[in-house]
Design a protein around this nucleic acid. Structure first.
Length: 407
DNA sequence: AGCGGCATAAGAGCCACAGGCAGCA
DNA sequence: ATTGCTGCCTGTGGCTCTTATGCCG
């Protein structure tokens, strides 16, 4: 059921948030993305009206539907249809911030039925006025940011990304043995706003070092026990929202990961062994929190794209190459057991899609398949010269009906 | 390490023609 | 709306030829 909002599950989803990898209704989009300055920076666009699972990139004015790239290709492929390939299409722009219905209408120039109550709108516009995104350290206030959808991942400047944090993170990555290319390739995206230094915003406390946290009892040590639960609830709320990309950030700072796990371990007793199987690891590639093997030398971990069965649909690095570096040395961290927190609906749908894909791939047959038996029967009795068909009545050197050659 | 020769594997193309299919009257 | 005709296109298997790959000296 991909039509419903991933957050409330009640309203029809209309927008797709790339940062959250979630389909949201307009109300939840406003609620979720007006929560703080970080979420306001999330790049959103319309959800594909055909697959209801991917961000729409074009609007077909002839069919009056918003389509993702895949559905656009499949629906407007000239080979499939000569009529649909000539449809007029226009690029759909992404937006960030908390736009009003009027602003959304201007972003999406085509007509939309934007059912936003005036109360919501006013509240949101109020929040929008408070919204401040620091661009290039100038502290310049910005409201709705219209982002070209064509290269949303690289248009960091348009999204007010603070590049000043990059060298710092890169050096951290080097220190941890993380390939800088991976770091840049995976993390310098529209999700940079979720880098670890922003934990201060999440927790309202200044952390000098995640290593410090680990060595001093983790995040929980910073709070009184009764406060900890509330703070953790807030944290896991954000964790659910940024599940996919947050995981990638954790790759760069395993100590932060340990902090989360150590607190979580005190709340829930993990029953997993340290010998994480390859399956569990691969499964966790699609889950917000990664399962690590503490014995990488003996594990059967294989990386898609490195050990064989790789394909475009299956291979999503998602920082695995970074983790490959990390896993070279035994790490002392334990396994997460927060399925109830991390089992967001989009992760489930993605898992289902991956399973469907794998089953389909397994069922694929590459042997020659005869589509027209009658033609095969005809070809089986046809006479030939050097394997080529000859006209009936002409000389031949091979007759399938006769075991002997004619000459 | 680089090169040429050889063996092997894989794939493309050829052939005639029945049948599918779209267009038209 | 249905039927019949016409012309174009597809697909069928065995063989040959070309290209790619690996091995050896």
């Amino acid at each position: 059921m991909g039509y419903m909002c991933d957050f409330c599950g009640e309203q029809r989803s209309m927008v797709y948030c790339r940062s959250d990898a979630a389909c949201l209704c307009l109300s939840c989009d406003r609620n979720v993305h007006s929560a703080n300055a970080l979420s306001k920076r999330h790049s959103r666009t319309l959800v594909c009206e055909r697959c209801n699972a991917q961000p729409a990139s074009v609007r077909c004015s002839d069919e009056r539907v918003s389509l993702c790239q895949n559905c656009d290709w499949s629906g407007h492929d000239g080979k499939n249809s000569t009529t649909t390939s000539h449809h007029k299409r226009q690029t759909i722009n992404c937006y960030s911030g908390c736009p009003s219905s009027a602003e959304l209408s201007s972003i999406w120039s085509f007509c939309m039925d934007l059912n936003i109550s005036s109360a919501e709108e006013s509240a949101c516009e109020q929040g929008m006025g408070l919204m401040t995104i620091d661009e290039d350290g100038t502290g310049e206030k910005s409201g709705v940011q219209k982002i070209n959808v064509e290269q949303p991942e690289t248009s960091s400047a348009a999204q007010g990304m603070d590049h000043s944090s990059v060298p710092e993170n890169s050096s951290m990555a080097k220190e941890l043995g993380v390939c800088e290319d991976d770091f840049n390739g995976n993390l310098i995206s529209d999700e940079v706003d979720l880098a670890l230094e922003n934990y201060e915003e999440l927790f309202g406390s200044a952390f000098n070092s995640s290593r410090y946290l680990f060595e001093h009892g983790g995040i929980g040590s910073l709070f009184e026990k009764d406060e900890a639960h509330e703070v953790l609830s807030t944290f896991f709320f954000y964790l659910r929202l940024v599940s996919l990309k947050l995981r990638m950030i954790f790759f760069c700072d395993p100590y932060a990961l340990l902090c989360v796990f150590s607190i979580q371990g005190s709340m829930q007793q993990p029953a997993l062994s340290n010998n994480a199987s390859a399956d569990s690891f691969m499964t966790c590639r699609t889950e917000p929190i990664i399962c690590y093997s503490s014995k990488p030398a003996h594990s059967n971990i294989s990386f898609s794209g490195i050990t064989g069965e790789s394909n475009a649909g299956d291979f999503q690095d998602c920082g695995a190459s970074s983790m490959k570096q990390l896993s070279r040395e035994p790490q002392p961290w334990c396994h997460p057991t927060a399925q109830d927190i991390i089992a967001s609906s989009h992760a489930t749908t993605r898992n289902n899609a991956v399973m469907r894909y794998k089953e389909k791939k397994k069922a694929r047959k590459f042997d020659k398949r005869v589509r027209y038996v009658s033609r095969k029967e005809r070809a089986d009795v046809r006479r030939r010269v050097k394997g080529r068909f000859v006209k009936s009545g002409e000389a031949y050197d091979y007759d399938p009906m006769s075991p002997t050659r004619s000459y």
